[in-house]
Design a protein around this nucleic acid. Structure first.
Lengths: 223, 223
DNA sequence: AAATGGTAAGTTGTATACAAAAAAAGAGTC
DNA sequence: GACTCTTTTTTTGTATACAACTTACCATTT
């Protein structure tokens, strides 16, 4: 009868956290919107406690600004931040990729390819922006797992979570990322060929290219 | 003449947060120790709510592992993590330094020098490990502010907060960091001379050198 | 009108109380 | 004794209630 048989006891805090994160990332909650605890609580049918805890976690993820006694707001979009985050990704992810390439096995390639296929398929669907972004993150991550760098990956995922907002904005305005998909496939091919230099170079360009487009978009948006 | 009090009322959550962070960083609360909410609450004369919120924030800082329904524990020390974090710092901080050096003014040099003097002075005091580490972090940060990279600095500070535990352990076992201080002065001198290459090279060595000593120490500790 | 001051309303912060889950302790079986 | 299943205890999760802070409003004063 119940659909959620294998869902194991999510706390309300987690439910609220995921709901709010998605709403902010998707733009459903616009940048700068004040996030009133009681309003969110009654809207999500919980008390203020889980809402507060979720907001606190979102603050540490950088998606929310939480000021004591004042309240929380959805973090604003900022061109400088976007530029910095993507440059940081370029720096760290090329390093990860360089460390990963030699260790990648056929299994890693297969997993990455499967994600890439899904990514491409998602573009042809109407409701793509929801899924494209997380698949994009997953694809990138799949190229680095062989480096076996748990702590680094955790930090990268965190940075990515922030980039997500900008990527979704980007996608929303462009309609599709055909260039990105082409670059992704090429990137994976370079990995398969173990061409470290070419792969890192391409990844670097891929990220900085996104950055400059996004920065321009944000500047226009927030002006 | 209104006395605009910049002294804001600290919430109990913040007080608990700082108290617990310091205890974990200093080793007063050992790695792996279970952190019982009620125990901490009564010990700090607050209710469990601020304790929970502080634990949640410490989890996002990486100092605590928080498992739903199970409870929180002080995060364990891990050689791999230390290695990764210091390598990451080397990667990001050398990049920051390279971007910063050309923009540094006399003011920046003065501030850095002042921090360095304090750092050196702190070594001659009995209770050094408390202050040395935060001064060390501040000194490093002072070299990068000119790069004017807010978001990047935020992430660096976060990584540093995790490194702190390892640095303090290091200091505790070595008794002093005379080498580090010598390297710090040399680093600042390179900055003053605008010798980007030498400064970055030294910073890189400085961080990786610490890393290898710390890794060895942690391996011995946790064995 | 601008500034001051002081209430009132709204929002956040935290203590308390209770519900739910996990861990620990017994009771019975093999 | 080891194992399973129940029962008890401990610990965490969350709703509610109230206290503390901030802001907005209005009266008073200059």
């Amino acid at each position: 009868m119940t659909i959620n048989t294998n869902i194991v006891h999510k706390t309300r805090t987690q439910v609220v956290l995921e709901a709010l994160r998605e709403r902010i990332l998707s733009g459903d909650i616009a940048a700068g919107t004040p996030l009133r605890q009681s309003a969110l609580a009654s809207e999500l049918n919980v008390s203020r406690i889980p809402v507060r805890e979720a907001l606190l976690q979102l603050e540490s993820e950088g998606l929310v600004n939480f000021e004591p006694h004042k309240g929380a707001t959805a973090a604003g979009l900022c061109a400088e931040q976007a530029q910095e985050l993507f440059e940081l990704r370029a720096l760290i992810e090329t390093d990860l990729l360089a460390k990963s390439i030699d260790k990648m096995t056929q299994d890693h390639f297969d997993i990455a390819q499967k994600l890439l296929d899904k990514l491409e398929a998602s573009l042809h669907q109407p409701d793509s922006s929801n899924t494209w972004s997380s698949l994009n993150t997953a694809f990138h991550a799949s190229l680095y797992v062989a480096a076996n760098r748990t702590s680094t990956m955790e930090i990268v995922q965190n940075i990515n979570s922030n980039c997500d907002r900008y990527v979704r904005l980007h996608l929303l305005h462009l309609g599709s990322f055909q260039d990105a998909d082409k670059q992704h496939q090429q990137l994976l091919d370079f990995c398969k060929a173990r061409d470290k230099k070419a792969a890192c170079e391409l990844l670097h360009q891929h990220l900085l290219g996104s950055a400059s487009e996004i920065v321009e978009l944000v500047l226009r948006q927030t002006k």
